[in-house]
């Protein structure tokens, strides 16, 4: 869609309003319930294993640059980095976008800072490899094998290269936890990784990990948004079944650029 139309605007507004309301409610101290996400419990185990083995951990934020998805990935990885700082593990974080380096460095440094270990943060462990998809994958594959990483955390925007990294890490026996909004890559991550979070669990992960009121509230708002969409789908099917294909709801939701 190139431009919004009234129906989309209304719906987006309703969902945004739900999210913001829930954020502010939660900030005022009304801590809501959220369920467990099984894959994320594995993060601490995986960090623990790397500590036992005394080998580094790979943190992989995907191919994105400074964008919403990659920042979300970084938020999850920053949590991992905190645990790494606590146990004194070395981390390796190859990035694929030069402009992302400062963001990554700030976030990881802060993770070390929060654990009072800022002196053990090594800026050169956040390294740029290449912004070309497969050169990057080749570099990461080499790193995984040479550094014999104990665990790999793959969170972010992945495309075909996901399997190259996941299989190489699998071959050297690394424990892997992964999550991505690229649905087409999830089957391969499931096949090669030990724990995979699916779909919008990716966006729920930080709320689950930090229990930060803002994030938890946002998660509740997201649920409301999804419920609204689901309800429209069900209503649409029922109305189309009863009234035929030329009904008001169908006409509302048909984008303008389709009609013109």
């Amino acid at each position: 869609m190139e431009h919004s139309d009234p129906v989309n605007s209304t719906l987006t507004f309703i969902i945004c309003a739900a999210i913001l309301t829930m954020i502010f409610r939660s900030r005022r101290g009304k801590q809501p319930f959220i369920r467990r996400i099984p894959g994320l419990n594995a993060i601490d185990d995986a960090v623990g294993r790397a500590t036992e083995m005394g080998r580094p951990m790979l943190l992989q934020p995907g191919l994105g640059g400074i964008d919403v998805i990659t920042l979300q990935a970084l938020a999850i990885l920053a949590y991992v980095a905190r645990a790494a700082a606590r146990f004194g593990n070395r981390i390796i974080m190859p990035v694929a976008d030069a402009s992302f380096i400062p963001v990554a460095e700030e976030a990881i440094r802060e993770s070390y800072n929060l654990e009072g270990r800022v002196e053990s943060f090594r800026a050169e462990d956040i390294m740029f490899l290449s912004d070309r998809q497969f050169a990057f994958a080749a570099g990461v594959a080499g790193l995984i094998n040479r550094e014999k990483v104990a665990t790999a955390f793959l969170f972010g925007l992945f495309f075909a290269e996901s399997l190259i990294m996941a299989e190489n890490a699998n071959q050297i026996g690394a424990i892997q936890v992964a999550g991505t909004p690229s649905t087409t890559q999830i089957p391969f991550l499931i096949a090669a990784c030990d724990y995979v979070i699916i779909g919008d669990e990716f966006y729920a992960a930080t709320a689950f990990l930090t229990r930060e009121p803002t994030l938890v509230g946002s998660l509740v708002g997201q649920d409301i948004g999804k419920a609204v969409i689901l309800l429209i789908c069900i209503l649409g099917v029922l109305i189309t079944t009863i009234m035929g294909p030329d009904n008001f709801l169908m006409n509302w939701f048909t984008p303008l650029w389709w009609k013109r």
């Binding site: 969902i15 919403v68 998805i69 909004p181 649905t183 990716f202 946002s218 948004g225 999804k226």
Partner: peptide
């Protein structure tokens, strides 16, 4: 649908 709402919220 879930990814869309998650992306929007973030």
């Amino acid at each position: 649908f879930g990814l869309g709402v998650g992306l929007l919220a973030t």
